[in-house]
C-alpha cells in the first residue's frame, strides 16, 4: 500500500472508532451492571486504540509528525479526549463525563470526515525542531483536559445541581483545570523557547500567540475566582464555559480572523 493516501482510508478507521464509542456510551448510560460498565470501558479503549493505529500508520506514511494541519490536530484531540474520559471514569466513576467526552471526540472525527485532508509530506524548515512534538502534544493534551472541564461546566449550568450534588463534579472540574492549565502554561513556554531558537524572539504577538495568551488569562481568572470564592459555583462555571469558547477561537477561529493573516500558526486546511 506504499504511497497510498492514508486519509482515503480514514473513513474506515473513523467509523470503527465511532461505532465502538457509540456502543460504549450506550452501555455506560443504559445499565448499572458492573460487567456492562467494564465492557463499555473496554469498547471505549478499543475505539481510541484503533485511532492510535491510524495515527501511527499516518505518521510512518507521511514521514513527519502528523501535527501540522487542523485535521491532524483534531485527530489527536479525539484520541486525548476519549482517553481522558476513560481515565477519569476509572478514577472518579463519572459515567456521564466519559459519555460526553466520547461524544465530543466523535464530533471531531465527523468534522474530519466532512473536511478531508490533503496529503502533504512536506514540513517547512522552521517547524523541523525538537520542540515541535512536545509543543503540540502538550497543547492538545491541555485542550482536551480543558474541553472535558467545560463539559462539566455546561452540565452544571443547564442541569442545576444542589449544593450536595455539585461537590464531586466541581472538584473534578478544578482538577481538570489545574492539570490542563499546567499543560497550557508549559505549551506556551515551550513555544516561547522554540520561537527564540527559530525566529530570534520568544514572543512576537503573532495572532495565535495573542489568542493563546488570552486563553491562558481566562483560565487564570477561573483559578483566582475559585480560589477566593469557593462556594460561588454558578459564576465559576460560567467563567469556565466562556474560557473554553475563547480557547476554541484560539484553536480554530484565528484562521479566519483578519488580524491573523500571514501567521506561522495558521494551519493549512
Amino acid at each position: 500500500m506504499e504511497g497510498q493516501n492514508m486519509w482515503l482510508d480514514f473513513p474506515i478507521y473513523a467509523s470503527v472508532a465511532i461505532v465502538c464509542w457509540l456502543a460504549a456510551s450506550g452501555l455506560f448510560l443504559s445499565s448499572g451492571k458492573k460487567l456492562m460498565n467494564q465492557m463499555a470501558a473496554g469498547l471505549s479503549f478499543a475505539g481510541t486504540a484503533f485511532l492510535l493505529v491510524f495515527i501511527t500508520i499516518l505518521w510512518v506514511n507521511i514521514q513527519r509528525p502528523p501535527m501540522r494541519t487542523l485535521g491532524e490536530t483534531r485527530l489527536w484531540y479525539a484520541v486525548f479526549l476519549s482517553g481522558i474520559g476513560l481515565v477519569s471514569y476509572l478514577r472518579w466513576k463519572y459515567k456521564w463525563l466519559v459519555s460526553y467526552s466520547l461524544g465530543l471526540a466523535m464530533v471531531f472525527l465527523i468534522i474530519n470526515l466532512n473536511h478531508p485532508e490533503t496529503y502533504d509530506k512536506t514540513l517547512m524548515p522552521a517547524l523541523q525542531s525538537p520542540w515541535f512534538i512536545p509543543h503540540v502534544i502538550v497543547y492538545i493534551f491541555a485542550y482536551a483536559m480543558l474541553g472535558a472541564s467545560s463539559l462539566i461546566a455546561l452540565r452544571n449550568l443547564f442541569f442545576v445541581p444542589t449544593e450536595r450534588t455539585i461537590k464531586g463534579p466541581i472538584q473534578m472540574a478544578d482538577n481538570l483545570v489545574y492539570l490542563g492549565f499546567s499543560f497550557l502554561t508549559l505549551g506556551l513556554l515551550f513555544g516561547a523557547l522554540w520561537a527564540k531558537e527559530a525566529w530570534g524572539h520568544y514572543w512576537t504577538w503573532d495572532p495565535k500567540e495573542t489568542w493563546a495568551f488570552i486563553t491562558w488569562m481566562f483560565y487564570l481568572v477561573y483559578i483566582h475566582y475559585r480560589f477566593r470564592h469557593p462556594s460561588e459555583h454558578k459564576k465559576a462555571m460560567a467563567v469556565l464555559a466562556v474560557s473554553f469558547a475563547i480557547l476554541l477561537i484560539c484553536w480554530f477561529g484565528v484562521n479566519y480572523l483578519p488580524s491573523a493573516q500571514n501567521s506561522v500558526h495558521v494551519y493549512s486546511e
Partner: peptide, 12 residues
C-alpha cells in the same frame, strides 16, 4: 515551568 509542574503535581 517549575511552577506549572507544581500545579500539575499538587492540584488545587
Amino acid at each position: 515551568m517549575a511552577g506549572a509542574v507544581f500545579l500539575f503535581v499538587s492540584g488545587k
